[in-house]
Amino acid sequence: MHLTRFRINTARQGARHLLASPQRMHAAVMSSFAGALPSQGNASRILWRLDRTSRAEVLLFIVSEDRPDLTHLVEQAGWPTTATWQTYDYKSFLDGLTAGSTWDFRLTANPVHHIRRTPDEERKRTAHRTPRHQMAWLLARQEQAGFRILETPAERRRLPQGDAYQLIVRDERRHRFDKTELTTGETKHVPLVTVTYDGRLEVTDPAALRRTLIQGLGRAKAYGCGLMTLARSGGR
């Protein structure tokens, strides 16, 4: 497994073109792997995420089984003469995860649920709209995903009933784009709501957490969701 980090040059028109559309960015990421097409099974093993830092940087992270070649992204959205990308051996990091260890984490996800407005209506998938429900979405998945989000010590909580967990939900983004079904040729309008989670967790099941880090968490993985990364405190 590999973890790749690429810094996007937001001053370039090509970069702004990619950043404006999760669908275009998905196509650019998939083009980094020989023979990889969105319709193939290996696409599910490729996760990516955009991080917008406090220094107004935009970083692209990719987790993949194969080593990517981002030459086309450097030419379109990077610094062709001064910088490329960094790819690291991810397997050694994953193998070193142990139960009880604690980490800072970041995750961009598509928190959704299914609703039925009337008894006869078919259940429809819709995005959670409030930070409280978005946070609850992640808390409901933590055990199966192999981790526990740490609670905030009582003396550090700003409100008696609030800030119970070391978890922040931020940077909600709403997208809408057209997607053409490869099998039918039908074009569908795709709404997408994403949020970014920053927090601190304890590893409870290293094997399950490894699967989460490799396979992603939640839906819309093709569009920059599901990739969780870990870091030591202050390591971002």
Rank of each mutant, 00 (worst) to 15 (best):
I168Y: 09
R176M: 12
Q215E: 12
R219D: 12
S39A: 10
D163N: 15
R157K: 09
E57G: 09
P22M: 00
G235L: 05
P38I: 05
K188T: 08
R16I: 08
T126H: 09
F6N: 06
R236N: 14
R157N: 12
L73C: 00
L227W: 03
D171N: 15
T184S: 06
L230N: 00
H114C: 08
I46H: 04
S31V: 05
T71S: 13
H189Q: 15
T204M: 02
G35E: 03
T81C: 11
R116P: 00
L230Y: 11
T194E: 04
A83T: 10
R141Y: 00
P131T: 06
D205F: 08
H114E: 14
Y223G: 02
G235A: 15
S54H: 13
Q23M: 03
L97M: 07
L159A: 13
L150F: 10
T152N: 07
A109T: 01
A28H: 10
F147K: 01
G14T: 12
F61C: 10
G14A: 13
Q166E: 14
L167R: 02
V58I: 14
T152F: 04
E155A: 15
A20D: 13
A27G: 08
T183Y: 08
F33A: 01
T187E: 05
R219G: 08
R45H: 15
